[in-house]
Amino acid sequence: MDRRPRSFYVLAAVFGLFVLFLYGPILTIGILSFQGPQGGLTFPMNGVSLYWFRDLFEQQAVGDIWGAFRRSFALGLMVMVSTVVISVMAGLAFRKRFRGSGLLFYAAITSLVIPSILISLGVGLIFNQLGLKIHWATSGFGSQLTWTLPFGLLIMFAVFNRFDKSYEEAARDQGASAWQTIRHVVLPIIAPSLIGVALFGFTLSYDEFARTLLTAGSYNTLPLEIFGMTTNVTTPVIYALGTLTTLFSLSIIAAFLLGAWIMGKRRARLGSDAGKGV
């Protein structure tokens, strides 16, 4: 292998700084969340304790954190499942050029680039005028889908652009119906990418703020609750909460990535199931 050019070391240093820039602040609040009971929002550390984490588990201290977490988790799962199902269906639809496909594609792109506050405002106004009550599981759920579905759809485009159609042709030649081809050929092949779509669906919903702001109703999701805390909480308890929810996000991401990795390994090990019958 030839020697690395000097530019490699310069760029590697830039990359290192970028990673530090990305992770430094969150590591800082991770450390600061272990402040002693008298500690403030910045260094120096005033002792080391779990005081602020304990504070989180006492209901009255900081509002309805755990209720908000449960709602965000439930909503995340709802959005995740819907995103996967709807994206796969739409991805299949877009492989053929059906009438109106161009329009639908541009609608999806609009959904991605539209300022989030418009969704929040518009959905809020509609529910208001129809006399419906806004709730995180109805108006909030729909608003979040406008953010997660375009990502799901774009991933499906990327997947189907690389999809080898001869597998399907082989299935059809053997007499498989359209549904059988999808169920036994297409879905198993694209399964690992669906983990990616699910990851986007869950995490984008779990952290979504702007589109949920006016559509969540009287019960806050976790990001809304945290934002509310920024205006009136001036103790490290907010760092403790930030640390916990970031750790939660990281473990979710790790679980998804691990799932995708294991699936890839198994596939490599087991190889084709040709001739085993389905």
């Binding site: 877009f94 050029r97 509609i126 889908l145």
Partner: peptide
């Protein structure tokens, strides 16, 4: 077939993107 498969996406975008913009 295309319409049936794209219907859920279209429904969500209609209800939570197009309608809100119109509103």
């Amino acid at each position: 077939a295309g319409w049936v498969q794209a219907a859920p996406l279209a429904a969500v975008l209609l209800g939570f993107l197009i309608a809100p913009i119109a509103m």
